[in-house]
Design a binder for these strands. Structure first.
Lengths: 178, 178
DNA sequence: GCACGCTTACTGAGTGGTTAGTAAGTAGTC
DNA sequence: GACTACTTACTAACCACTCAGTAAGCGTGC
C-alpha cells in the first residue's frame, strides 16, 4: 500500500515492495502471481473497511450524508490511504490499467449509495426529476475526490470536511427548495 | 500530450513520444534536455489556452462561474486534454514528481479566481466569514476535477456540465441565504 | 521416534526486455 | 566556419517474471 501510494502502480517496483516486506522480489511473486494481481488484492483488502464496503445495513438519508463528512474529517489523518486512492483512481484511466474495472465499479456503487441517501434525505416524491438528484449525487462523490488531490498538494489550503459539508448542505437545500 | 495522457508521466516512454513525433528518442532529447523538462514544457504550453491562464481581463462574478460550466460542457468533447490533466494532477502527488510545483501553483491560482468570483457574484460584504466562501470555492474546483475521473471511466454515467452547474447554483444560493 | 512423501515458503541466479540519458558523428544551412 | 538538427550507437540501470533449488514443517506408517 505504501509503495503504490508513494509511486503509483506503474512506477512502483516489486523490488521496493519486497524490501519493505523484508523478502526478495521473487518472494513477493510467490504469494502474488503478478504485480497486477498484487494491486487488485491490495484494493480488495482495503475496501472491506471503507464506505464502499458498507453492507445493506448502512446508515440512510441524512445520517449517511453526515457519515461522508465524518469520513472526510477522518481522512485528514490518514494521508497514506488518501494518497493510495487519489493516485490509483486517476491512474486507472490510463490505457490497460489493471484497476480500471475496480474503480469503474467502485464509482458506480458510490453514486448509487449517494443517490439513494439524497432521495431519502430530501423526502422526494415523484415530483422530482431523477436527473437532478443524480447530478447532485455525482457531484458529492466528485467533490470528495477532487479535494483529496488539492489537500495532498497543500494541506494548509484545504479543509476537506468543511468543503464537503458546505456542498452537501447546499445541495440538500437546493433539492428541497426546487 | 497524447502519450502522457494515455500512460501517465511515469510509464510514458521517450521512445513512444519520439515515434509519434516521427523522430528518434535521442532526437526528442535534442529539443528537451530531459523527460521532466518535456513534461513541464507540455504543461506550460497547454496552460496558455486554459482557464488558469486567463489574464486580469477575465470575466467576473457570475459570468466567470458560468464560464466554468461552459468549460465543463466543452471538456466533454476534449477527452485527450481532460485525461492529460486528470492523470497528471493526481500523479503529481507521488514522491519527487516533476509536475508537483506546477499543480500546486495551478490549484492555488484556481482557488483564488473562484473565491474572487464567488465573492463578487454573491455581493458579499464584511458580514460573511471568509472561511465559508473559501470552502465553497475549493469545492467548486474539486468537483470539476473529481467529475473528470468519473467521466473518463464511465462517460454515460456522468454529465460534467450538469453536475458542475448544480453545485455552483446551490453554493451561490446558500452563500446568499446564509 | 523416526523415516516417508508432500506442501509451503522462500532465495539466488538468471532472462529478455525497456529505460533515460550520453557521446560522437553527419548532413544541411547561414 | 559555425550552428542547427538530427542519427546511430552505446551505457548503466532497472523492470517483471521464471526457474531450479533449499530448508523447514506436517501428517502418516511402522
Amino acid at each position: 500500500m505504501e509503495t503504490f501510494a508513494a509511486r503509483g502502480y506503474g512506477k512502483a517496483s516489486l523490488a521496493e515492495i519486497a524490501d519493505r516486506a523484508g523478502l526478495t522480489q521473487a518472494g513477493v511473486l510467490h504469494y502474488f502471481r503478478s504485480k497486477a494481481n498484487l494491486l487488485t488484492e491490495v484494493l480488495d483488502l482495503r475496501d472491506t473497511t471503507d464506505i464502499a464496503g458498507l453492507g445493506p445495513e448502512r446508515p440512510r438519508g441524512l445520517t449517511f450524508l453526515q457519515h461522508l463528512v465524518d469520513t472526510a474529517r477522518h481522512n485528514a489523518e490518514r494521508e497514506g490511504i488518501v494518497r493510495l486512492y487519489a493516485v490509483l483512481s486517476a491512474e486507472s484511466v490510463t490505457d490497460d490499467h489493471p484497476a480500471q474495472d475496480y474503480f469503474r465499479n467502485r464509482y458506480a456503487g458510490l453514486r448509487g449509495f449517494v443517490t439513494e441517501a439524497l432521495t431519502e434525505a430530501c423526502d422526494l416524491g415523484e415530483v422530482h426529476e431523477d436527473v437532478d438528484v443524480e447530478s447532485a449525487a455525482n457531484a458529492i462523490v466528485a467533490v470528495m475526490d477532487g479535494l483529496q488531490v488539492q489537500w495532498l498538494l497543500d494541506p494548509e489550503a484545504v479543509d476537506m470536511a468543511a468543503s464537503t459539508e458546505s456542498v452537501i448542505k447546499a445541495l440538500v437545500a437546493s433539492l428541497e427548495a426546487g
